[in-house]
């Protein structure tokens, strides 16, 4: 058989993936009858496909969702507003003002601010908005709690060896006892596996995972803000 008449690899893949139309499928099946090489190639592709599927048969999240998680997910949307703090960054001053104004109108028991990045503009905006909010709440006599939950690279801000915001956070915490900080233990585990000794700033606590902490707070009726 000349190379020009060989069935292309793309066609062979499409065959084993069930992506050929009826006419092409029939033509290829007819061709297989007299072409041992083609049969072998298709058999290898089929084997590969099965191997890929089988290789991840046991891959499961480290922590399967519990009944409590399921209740949590079910209640998330019903109980809480979700604000995207990223909007404060990209929508300009008007939206930032509008977002902050709407936040001030929230009568929730608390606000959980999720910081997943250590980028300066993200962290600075988040801390500035939190401080403005806490100041306004105090002036208005509103009792509200704020928790900053950090994971991924955002956890750098809560680590004593990496934080560029240690003094600022200490000052904020001293001024506002209703402001707390939680670090994601899952992110910490990943750092520990790389040999990093994770030390947190004073007053910072570990949460099992950032998602767990956020869902827990939202179940309690808190507002979620994503920095």
């Amino acid at each position: 058989m000349s190379r020009e008449r060989e069935v292309s690899r793309e066609m062979q893949n499409a065959f084993v993936d069930g992506q050929l139309d009826a006419a092409d499928w029939t033509a290829l099946v007819e061709r297989m009858g007299g072409d041992e090489s083609l049969r072998r190639q298709l058999c290898e592709l089929r084997t590969l496909k099965d191997m890929v599927k089988g290789a991840y048969a046991d891959a499961r999240p480290s922590r399967a969702p519990t009944a409590a998680d399921r209740r949590g997910w079910a209640r998330v949307a019903g109980l809480a507003l979700v604000f995207a703090l990223a909007g404060w960054l990209v929508h300009g001053a008007t939206d930032r003002g509008q977002a902050a104004a709407e936040l001030r109108g929230v009568s929730a028991g608390g606000i959980v601010v999720h910081v997943a990045s250590s980028r300066g503009e993200v962290v600075n905006t988040a801390l500035q908005e939190v401080e403005d909010y806490l100041r306004d709440a105090r002036a208005a006599g509103r009792k509200v709690k704020v928790e900053i939950v950090a994971n991924q690279t955002g956890m750098d801000i809560l680590r004593s060896d990496t934080s560029a915001y240690a003094k600022r956070l200490e000052r904020l915490h001293a001024a506002y006892p209703n402001l707390t900080f939680s670090a994601c233990n899952q992110t910490a585990d990943r750092l520990r596996e790389k040999g990093v000794a994770v030390k947190l700033l004073p007053g910072v606590h570990f949460a099992p995972t950032a998602l767990d902490e956020i869902v827990k707070r939202m179940q309690q009726g808190w507002v979620y803000i994503r920095a």
Partner: peptide
């Protein structure tokens, strides 16, 4: 600003699944 209003319980269950 975006909110979660209007997302049904069924939708949340399907996401979780």
């Amino acid at each position: 600003m975006r909110g979660l209003f209007g997302v049904s319980a069924q939708f949340r269950a399907r996401v979780e699944a």
